[in-house]
Simulated scan of single mutants.
Amino acid sequence: MQLSRRHFLATSAAALALPYSRVWAATTLTMGSVRIDSLSDGHLELPLDFTFAGLPEAEVSALLDRHGLAAGGLTPPCNLTLLRDGTNTVLFDLGSGPDFMPTAGKVIEALAALDLTPEDVTHVLITHGHPDHLWGLLDEFDEPVFAEADYMIGQVEFDYWMDPATVDSIGEDRASFAIGASRRLEVITDSVRKLADGEEALPGITARLTPGHTPGHMAYEIVSPDGALMVVGDAIGNHHIAFDQPDWPSPSDQDPATAAITRTALLERLATSGVPLLGFHLPHGGLGRVEKTDTGYRFTEEI
């Protein structure tokens, strides 16, 4: 079956059937001539406080039990999105590279599983500048990994990480994020295209400002004659508390209040439209849909 024609802002709640197959490190979705693969960059290992610090302990404990999460820490997957339309080969985000966590930085292996190399990538669209999304820009020799690609990032996001004041304002725990981001963006500063909210990055791909996780975080709306998909990055950062309690502030977000507003609005739009999403830290490749529940939302994988 093919995706029916649908836009991100559509209001019909009818479900869409997605044809897909799963191979190592990839989940594949086809929309006519457009093929989208979810590529595994590995996973992160995070303490519970990264997501749950300051939240009600009893409710957090119940949420961990409900979702089968380990009390000792979180191991979120890292799903990069690859789009091929017969002309362009577009990678959304770059992964962690060699300098962040040893459990991540595996995107080149995932590409190889699809018989692709970094040189095949024509465009890179960046959601935001955190290490697991940007640090894969450079290899262990500080050379660009995707040397043939054209790069794009939100204007607000680029300006934030390139501002020398960010390292002092972001907080001590994340100062290395600012240093690492500016070092990598400096490599492409003369060529990177800076996107505005609502700007078409490539035919059929529109940048959508989704701030809060970072100041200029971008999601990307993909629309073809045969369907639609939203690449949400970290605007919806997990499959548990982000869906169960989207209005709760999360310490993983740089501006928790703004992120909660963004997240709630995005979940509502996706639930109402029936348009699928691909989330960077959502399970089993990150491809699924948002369903409303009596108290919040639920992530439903496409299986």
Rank of each mutant, 00 (worst) to 15 (best):
Y220L: 13
E221T: 08
I222P: 00
V223G: 01
S224I: 01
G227T: 04
A228N: 02
A228C: 10
A228K: 02
L229R: 00
M230F: 10
M230S: 03
V231F: 00
V231G: 00
V231S: 00
V232S: 07
G233E: 12
D234L: 03
I236N: 04
I236F: 07
G237R: 12
N238Q: 10
N238P: 10
I241Q: 06
I241K: 04
F243D: 09
D244M: 03
D244F: 05
Q245M: 14
P246D: 13
D247N: 12
D247A: 15
W248N: 08
W248Y: 08
P249T: 13
P251S: 13
P251V: 13
P251I: 13
S252M: 15
S252C: 15
D253F: 07
Q254V: 00
D255F: 11
D255L: 08
D255S: 06
D255T: 09
D255R: 08
P256I: 01
P256E: 00
P256W: 03
A257I: 07
A257P: 01
A257W: 06
A257N: 04
T258F: 02
T258E: 13
A259R: 01
A260M: 04
I261K: 14
T262Y: 10
T262K: 09
R263I: 08
T264F: 01
A265W: 09
A265I: 11
L267V: 04
T272Y: 04
T272G: 10
T272W: 01
S273A: 14
S273H: 12
S273W: 10
G274D: 01
G274Y: 04
G274S: 03
G274P: 01
V275F: 05
P276M: 07
L277M: 12
L277T: 01
L278F: 04
G279M: 09
G279H: 10
F280A: 14
H281D: 14
H281K: 11
H284K: 11
G286P: 01
G286D: 02
L287W: 07
